[in-house]
């Protein structure tokens, strides 16, 4: 199709506006994180001093440590449970309740976060009253809640990879003397490893920047990075928060990029 010059310019403009709408806010955070001035809206020169301040801010470092720990736990838990769910969905044929199971596993993808958060909070309160665990709310409850929603994403990614494997591979392994678990470890696991890594990274980044659900199930002393940022912004935005935001954007982009590359490789 021949495209006229005018149409090309118009198309480029629309595309530019679209990108600007999506990314201008993030870009402004990044740009102002390098601002020398304490005032967020006034540019007074380039500086990396706010990044230096970050490195000495104990509140930030503690929040970072907590967030990374929870994210690693949530990602690992989601991949383990997600692999089991995905294997059942992809390989166990038509079992009773499969459609229901499939729907329930994926439910957190469409459920409003507020609902998930509220229901998790009610569950934890009830559990504490009935069985005395978990005591109070904090890192443990946040981690459990994050596993819950990350499982949905992990299952979708891993299931599609398992479904694309030739079932004859597992049959061949069994035929050659491998018991089901040995066949899974020797044949299935290496072949779905890229998808497992992608699912882990995606779960990790979802956990790292979750705010709504975390806000519901956190307790005293358990302040994750997003909670910390939100509470500081209430007192007014400062360049240090911009710097923190920029770092998070950087980490999240890298994680997302790696996950995408891994998935493409596993095809």
């Amino acid at each position: 199709m021949r495209v006229s010059r005018g149409a090309k310019i118009a198309g480029g403009t629309v595309l530019g506006l679209g990108y600007a709408f999506l990314f201008a806010p993030i870009l402004s955070v990044i740009v102002y994180s390098f601002n020398e001035s304490r005032l967020v809206t006034v540019w007074s020169g380039f500086s990396t001093k706010w990044y230096g301040e970050l490195a000495h801010d104990d509140r930030v470092l503690n929040a970072l440590r907590l967030s990374l720990g929870i994210a690693a736990f949530a990602a690992s838990g989601a991949v383990i449970i997600g692999t089991m769910a995905a294997y059942a969905l992809a390989r166990f044929g038509k079992f009773r309740g499969k459609a229901l199971f499939s729907g329930l596993v994926a439910a957190p993808l469409v459920l409003p976060e507020v609902t998930t958060g509220l229901s998790m909070l009610l569950l934890f309160v009830l559990m504490e009253r009935l069985i005395g665990w978990p005591q109070g709310r904090g890192a443990i409850t946040i981690a459990i809640a994050h596993v819950t929603f990350a499982v949905a994403y992990a299952t979708v990614i891993i299931r599609s990879r398992i479904a694309s494997l030739d079932p004859a591979l597992e049959e061949a392994a069994a035929d050659l003397g491998a018991r089901p678990f040995a066949a899974f470890v020797a044949v299935v696991l290496p072949l779905i490893a890229p998808a497992l890594a992608a699912a882990w990274l995606l779960s990790f980044s979802l956990s790292l920047d979750d705010f709504v659900i975390t806000a519901f199930v956190t307790g005293p002393g358990a302040t994750t990075l997003p909670l910390l940022i939100f509470s500081s912004v209430k007192l007014g935005v400062n360049p240090e928060i911009n710097a923190l935001g920029t770092l998070i954007v950087g980490v999240a982009s890298m994680v997302a990029l790696t996950a995408t590359l891994l998935q493409r490789k596993s095809g």
């Binding site: 004859a168 003397g177 491998a178």
Partner: peptide, 15 residues
């Protein structure tokens, strides 16, 4: 895995 048979699959199913 307990039968004295082995199979050549149509798709070969090589690992």
């Amino acid at each position: 895995y307990e039968r004295p048979t082995n199979m050549v699959f149509q798709s070969y199913a090589l690992f």
